[in-house]
Amino acid sequence: MYELAYVRPQSLTDALAMLAQDDGAQALSGGQTLMPVLRARLAMPTRLVDLARLHELAGITPAGDGIEIGAATTHHDVSTSSAVRSVLPALAGLAGGIGDAQIRHRGTIGGSIANNDPAACYPSALLALGASITTSQRTLAAQDFFTGMFSTALEPGEIVRSIRLPACDKARYIKFRNPASRFALVGVFAARLPGGYRIAITGGGNGVFRWQEAEQHLDSGGSVSAIAEERLDIGNFTGDLHGSAEYRRHIAAVTVRQAISAIT
């Protein structure tokens, strides 16, 4: 890790000021992705602004018919939250499968979505469920928030405050693990919302995306078994030594069928 300064602001206002003061400042939440990046000397922030203990970013609260999750909420706390389990059990399941137990104890939902790793789990849920993301400056729809791999609509100095998700008991996240890293080789979040089916796919390599053709197929009464991988644009997938684009696309289609079967 290169030399840097660590600061722990006492309030959100302080945190935003610290981030604004210094172009090289980097927000630190759970740090479970950031620390390995820093250890590998792949990033050179001048200072880390620790958001993990800010009370403004904490807590899981009911919001309308859904829930609002503070950005600093750990994956473990999401996975074990009775509120999440009752209104959105698929999200608890997803959170309980991120990384490993130690990582779930530190890693946070805000940190995960702000990083938007193309193999991260959370972005698929937010995109499929039509979550809204409240930042220090505004509220964004998930589809506007995730803008590409490792890329979001967050401006410099802007941080995620909370994520609001609708209740949904017809949803399922299924992850096909990379045998080495255990990240998602492909992850599928499928939900049946009042407006119809929603399917979001992560792990393809180019960032999370929705498979709208399959959604429409299901909405118009099409069968699960007819969800064909050939109709999934291969441009959404890249290949590496763990699987070609073609294989990832195939696994995505298989996983979509499994997820849809589980909620219908």
């Binding site: 045998p179 080495a180 890293s181 990240f183 030594l241 763990h242």
Partner: peptide
């Protein structure tokens, strides 16, 4: 699962961490 893979062109080790070595 285990396989040490070098890039055939650059001879970079593609499986140089537990992220890529199974």
């Amino acid at each position: 699962w285990e396989n040490a893979v070098y890039d055939p062109e650059t001879a970079q080790l593609l499986t140089a961490s537990y992220m890529d070595y199974g």
